[in-house]
Nucleic acid binder design. Structure first.
Lengths: 359, 359
DNA sequence: GAGATATTTTGAAAGGTTTCAAACGAGTTC
DNA sequence: GAACTCGTTTGAAACCTTTCAAAATATCTC
């Protein structure tokens, strides 16, 4: 690969001048500028990002730390971030933590040695991101936290409006006439799981319905968890006629358990999930879900990061993205209820988009 | 961040010695070695990957270029590659091409400036990877191509046994008694789409069944393509009673079209896809599919790459991974046929794993 | 214990860029 | 025509490693 020295020689100028042309860091007379540009063109020269990063004390890489790219919700987030990053000249280094905070720590330490321009992080379970991010910020590296927040997070963040989404989903179930509701939540130390439970409870409270503790089951955000906790719920007396699942994977497990128990969804039990994964449309019955745009989560986070890199020194941003309720075939009136109010296929609720900003 | 100079001072040795301790590049007396290690520990020192890469002319980054992380097949591939890479001290830079070869080219050129240790590539449509890879190889950078191969590819590769998988799927349909088969292929300039069609044709030939050209529809590897091509197939006379889809997204679109046309799967039309995505299990009816392990594709590619980095100079490797046929509810005997031979739920065929190696 | 040899440590160069102070050249002013 | 400006260009240092030849030290042999 050609280097700057060769370009300098070709264009009969000094190293410094080449650099200035490439970075617009000083005015260079037009004829000289052109000569340099020509040489660059002719040699197919591209500056070494390593040397540049070393000298500038900052590269054009963005570290993206997520639990697991294999989890169907995350690819869209990554893609959103990559699109914005890429079109602004930044590249993504992808790291999976498997929700293991020690693996997260390894990544955080390791990434430092690349002098990344910034970090976009979906924190792991029991993440220690807050202290780590502090040291990054001291080094001038932006850190944006998305989807869920670690303990004491005070930096930039982008999340979905989990509380409101869950509230709307629950209200929908109530409007269908259900009174025996249950919920299967994700791990409640995760802020998103907690907020969804809060939304569920708010709707229940407003409807003046009592919520016995055994109707709230906590588990991991996966199919297996949804399956086993649903079996528990189905043994309760009275049996719940509607379940709000903390995410679609849990809902999927619930669907399995319901079917296996010889019950039908939605005739016997209605079900709403969260995330609106692609698979929600294709299950049997199709799964109702609180839709949040992972892609938008990613683009927004990257946008904030880039703004910071361009010098935005404002106070920490906490963006909250709106959700949309998608009612499909997994919701109906409870058994024995007068059957007005059939499930209307398709969207409802408000349009998606940037919502309120709590600063 | 502490640098090597500080460590050297703390341990009262020279820069070179610190480097030797860190890299085992020369024997260092035990007491000295310990002093250095202690200083490293105390300072929490981590060597700058940038400086190291610059000096060594090679970083520990692996460029991973894929069409689109949002496509449900690819995350597992990426994860497989990341796992192997990470546990060997390498990191992944993720690039999406959207199947656009000019975007691929941009990534290939850009990545060069990071001096990556290697590249793992799923080539885009009409990829020019072959010439690009040549120049990478000259620079000592390994390139492994996976899933499908660009024109004239002669380097290392890992692919699924597409031909055999498609052949097995088709034979299964034939055994169920179908004689009017159709297939919807992916873009036939992609080697994997082509090979799957070949397998389909081989089974048809062996069964001495004529295959009229209109029963072979080519489209893109997505739901939309599957949907529209299925509508065309359904208008043919005689109407096919079984469809082999080039991948699961196409199959999903086919399912939609079948349902919309007022037909039933599998009673009227049987359907088999390819890839065995997670969603195949949850569709209605559950989708039969040729299962290939994306994860294994990724790990194998990374493994080959690492072997190359450790000095393996052998001839180009062409690994071909076996597939497994998963028959679910989307397959049954054709309408009007004597109904022996009901679909047996669950796996069949051989175990997954590394298959033959064509060198 | 001197000389030779083997082992360990050092110092400086190199890798490709950015950046800053200094040098340069062309006008301008008196 | 000397002294000054102003706008351009240059050269060298710095960023943090690795590596290689050379220096320093330890070990061995007689």
């Amino acid at each position: 690969m050609a280097n700057m020295k060769e370009i300098a020689k070709m264009a009969r100028v000094s190293l410094g001048t080449v650099s200035h042309v490439l970075n617009n860091s000083a005015v260079v007379r037009e004829p000289v500028r052109l000569r340099v540009l020509e040489a660059v063109q002719a040699a197919g020269y591209q500056p070494s990002q390593l040397a540049r990063g070393l000298r500038r004390d900052k590269t054009n890489m963005i570290g993206m730390i997520i639990p697991d790219i294999t989890n169907p919700f995350f690819p869209a987030v990554v893609r959103g971030a990559e699109d914005v990053a890429f079109s602004n000249g930044y590249r993504l280094i992808l790291c999976n933590t498997d929700n293991d905070h020690s693996k997260e720590l390894v990544h955080l330490n390791e990434l430092r040695t690349y002098l990344p321009a910034g970090l976009i992080v979906i924190p792991s379970n029991f993440s220690d991101l807050t202290t780590q991010a502090e040291s990054y910020r001291r080094a001038g590296t932006g850190v944006v936290c998305i989807d869920r927040l670690p303990k004491n997070w005070s930096g930039d963040s982008v999340t979905a409006d989990n509380e409101e989404g869950a509230y709307n989903a629950t209200r929908c179930l109530l409007q269908f006439g259900h009174t025996k509701l249950a919920t299967i939540t994700g791990p409640l130390h995760l802020t998103n799981a907690k907020e969804r439970l809060d939304g569920f409870k708010r709707a229940m409270r407003e409807a003046r319905l009592h919520l016995a503790p055994e109707y709230v089951q906590e588990t991991t955000f996966d199919k297996q968890g949804g399956y086993s906790k649903t079996l528990i719920l189905l043994r309760l007396i009275p049996r719940p006629t509607a379940i709000f699942a903390g995410n679609d994977m849990i809902a999927l497990g619930a669907l399995l358990a319901i079917r296996e128990a010889g019950l039908r969804c939605p005739e016997d039990i209605s079900l709403i999930g969260f995330d609106d994964l692609d698979l929600a449309e294709t299950t049997n019955p199709s799964l109702s879900s609180v839709s949040q745009s992972g892609y938008q989560l990613g683009t927004t986070a990257a946008r904030i990061l880039l703004d910071r890199l361009e010098g935005d020194k404002g106070p920490a941003k906490h963006l909250v993205l709106e959700t949309t309720l998608k009612i499909r075939h997994s919701v109906a009136a409870p058994p024995g209820a007068p059957r007005r109010n059939r499930a209307s296929k398709g969207r409802r609720s408000t349009k998606p988009g940037l919502a309120e900003e709590r600063a």
